[in-house]
């Protein structure tokens, strides 16, 4: 027997030996385990979000300092710039847009290095707007369920009504003679035409208006005068009111008062108002949270009066 043959025979005997088999199995299983473990670790390492990589993920068209430029953004930018579909864009046109986006990303990253959020007012405004929107994104875009809307409708019923409409004739008497004003108002009440009253008592009507919503009539007449006429019916005349250097006499031509709307009719408005309400609540809750975790120091000369 040659030395090689003897060695081979010896190895065969060791392999067939139950004790040796156990050792070999252990070694093989250990190796398999190591390979599997390393494979899983490697896969995890090279595919985890944020991992530095030299490849471009399939959803991106480029990576700039590990920041992706999404294909979707690239397509939208290309179509927006070129005014045609992405499929119609030539390769040169696409490459030009891609380079512009790379340049934009480089400049944005530079702006972060320069901390423009601290020094540039436009950047600060944009950040405030973006964060405010982000805070309330869930509320703005989610659909409240029917029960939530009905509860909101029940607890805020007064704000869901049709718009009040009104047409008025606002007559003005120059000076302060309230007796003349009262006589003119009585004449109107007794059915004398507006034209005759104006001619007879020296009144003027600076502007004629058609029927308008309550808010517009209120804006024109002012709070005091509007409060006087808001509840008057068509044909009624207010008690003359002195405002500034003139007396105002208002005759109501028509008045359609706001009518509470039933839930099915008001539903769209209820949904809008509910979201606005929740929007404010969410924003305030976030600000309370941010204040709670922040250290805010107010200078002595303002500290006593400062209230969030």
């Amino acid at each position: 027997m040659t030395p090689d043959a003897a060695l081979s025979s010896s190895a065969m005997q060791r392999a067939l030996d139950p004790a040796s088999t156990s050792t070999l199995r252990a070694m093989v299983l250990c190796a398999v385990g190591a390979i599997v473990g390393l494979s899983i670790a490697g896969y995890g390492l090279f595919t985890a979000a944020g991992t530095s990589t030299r490849t471009v993920p399939p959803e991106s068209v480029a990576m700039v300092n590990q920041r992706p430029i999404l294909r979707s953004d690239f397509i939208a930018q290309t179509e927006s710039e070129l005014g045609k579909t992405f499929a119609e864009a030539t390769r040169d046109e696409r490459l030009k847009v891609l380079d512009e986006m790379v340049r934009e990303e480089l400049l944005v990253q530079r702006s972060l290095e320069l901390d423009f959020a601290e020094t540039d007012q436009d950047s600060r405004n944009a950040l405030v707007t973006a964060v405010t929107q982000q805070i309330t994104v869930g509320i703005v875009t989610s659909e409240p369920d029917e029960q939530q809307l009905m509860n909101f409708y029940e607890t805020h019923k007064e704000q869901f009504s049709s718009e009040g409409r009104m047409q008025v004739v606002d007559l003005v008497l120059a000076g302060e003679n309230m007796e003349v004003g009262r006589a003119a108002a009585n004449a109107l009440r007794s059915g004398t035409s507006v034209e005759d009253v104006m001619a007879g008592f020296g009144l003027t009507q600076p502007v004629r208006h058609d029927e308008d919503y309550y808010f517009a009539v209120k804006y024109r007449l002012g709070d005091v005068l509007f409060a006087q006429v808001e509840h008057l019916s068509a044909g009624a005349v207010n008690e003359p009111v002195r405002l500034g250097d003139a007396i105002h006499i208002v005759q109501v031509v028509s008045n359609t008062r706001p009518v509470p709307l039933a839930y099915p009719i008001a539903r769209a408005q209820v949904a809008t108002d509910f979201k606005m309400f929740e929007h404010e609540r969410s924003l305030n809750a976030t600000l309370t949270f941010l204040r709670g975790r922040s250290t805010i120091l107010i200078a002595d000369d303002y500290a006593a009066d400062y209230k969030p």
């Binding site: 999404l70 979707s72 579909t85 973006a130 929107q133 982000q134 703005v140 875009t141």
Partner: peptide, 18 residues
């Protein structure tokens, strides 16, 4: 499809400026 995908990505009046 690209327009639908854009809406799924960034939404409508969603708080995403895109």
């Amino acid at each position: 499809l690209s327009e639908i995908e854009r809406i799924v990505l960034y939404g409508i009046r969603s708080g995403y400026s895109k």
